[in-house]
Design a protein around this nucleic acid. Sequence first.
DNA 1: TGTTGACTAATTGTATACAAACATTTAAAT
DNA 2: ATTTAAATGTTTGTATACAATTAGTCAACA
Lengths: 222, 222
Amino acid sequence: MYAYEFIKDSIIQGKFEPGMRLGEESLAKELNLSRTPVREAIKQLEAEGLVVPLKRGVSVRHFSKEDIRQIYDLRTLLEGYGASQAAIHRTGEDLKRMEAANALYEKAIDKYLESDMNSIKEIVDMNQEFHDAIVNASKNSHIQFHISKVVVVPLVFRSFNWYNPYQLKQSLEVHKIIHNAVRNKEPERARIAMHEHIYQGRDHVLRHLGQIKNSHLLKEEV
Amino acid sequence: MYAYEFIKDSIIQGKFEPGMRLGEESLAKELNLSRTPVREAIKQLEAEGLVVPLKRGVSVRHFSKEDIRQIYDLRTLLEGYGASQAAIHRTGEDLKRMEAANALYEKAIDKYLESDMNSIKEIVDMNQEFHDAIVNASKNSHIQFHISKVVVVPLVFRSFNWYNPYQLKQSLEVHKIIHNAVRNKEPERARIAMHEHIYQGRDHVLRHLGQIKNSHLLKEEV
DNA sequence: TGTTGACTAATTGTATACAAACATTTAAAT
DNA sequence: ATTTAAATGTTTGTATACAATTAGTCAACA
């Protein structure tokens, strides 16, 4: 649905700041729609936990550092399992998809190293594509469903902008290690590598959030 | 929201069979509401995966045996992690809640052994209460959120009706083992015991579904 | 000057009306 | 008799109107 995608993207891209109330009327006006489809989109986002109910209407959800830790723990668990299952169930097609994603990932990183800032979106997309390829290879659609909900939260912080070249290269290396483990049908190796990969991502985001003190994106801990 | 709870409960209690189209008008009439709140409830259930979109409207989702396996794998992963974290973060209050749940669980089982069929609901509730107490003790609200979505699916099959006295007693014993591990702060012990506990539940459901061949609840595998 | 109360404005929750899409049935033609 | 096409009826998707609740402001009284 159109309204759902629009509002979700707007939240991810930071157009609506956490804590900010989402007015149905203004959203409807911006989308050239009536309030009805807007309300339905909001209800879906509410069920996914991206917006929280207020006394009147909803607001974009605030995430604390503790939230980030918990979400990454959850993601580690799910994607680690996904990787181990991928190492069992992967087909030749799955391997090809992973390789294609990593090839484009590397290309985008190289462009970034030449200071092409437009490649950041491509980096994000190809990283996502690799992870999608893994969970898809696991052949467990329910894991896939839940991962897709978990993955959006860190996107809100747009932490990819903060990676340095060394970190991006390292990320690519781990992707290759995971790919190898999946190709060689080594479930535990794949799981551990994925764990490590996501924990590195978690540490990066937390470091990033530690730097921007009192960010409007971050809820202060009590 | 009222409409949401009503429709969800109706699905769990088998009032709407899988594959059956949910008419907005009839639901609204039954609830003495207009179509608007009914639609919003349906949109939420759709986001949770309990109903699936059709060309027109939605229907109750079908689950295959493979779905059940995948969902239980997911639940094992999540609740196993929850139990291990509970063993780390549990407070005295958490332990009390677990003990209270198990005490009532035992009482309900005893009533069941005296052929009191009304105690089945109590058994289901207290089993749920124990599991809730565990994930709550883990102090990870995001895990809790996802578990709550995963847990509803098996309820559709109402497999508790199929437990025999020995299995119920055994279930209670494992609850106690988990409780002990959490009390003694043994994360790995708690995780393994929870894994075993849920795998037993999975096997029970799959056995049950194997017996009722061609159940309308079960989508035939292709 | 600060606090409380009432009034007003704005926004959500619900109902209903209307239009569009889809299914079903009937009739006609090959 | 079977297949296709058209028409009708049912149901969803969207818009809008109305009611109810909340927040905000202004004034009055302590």
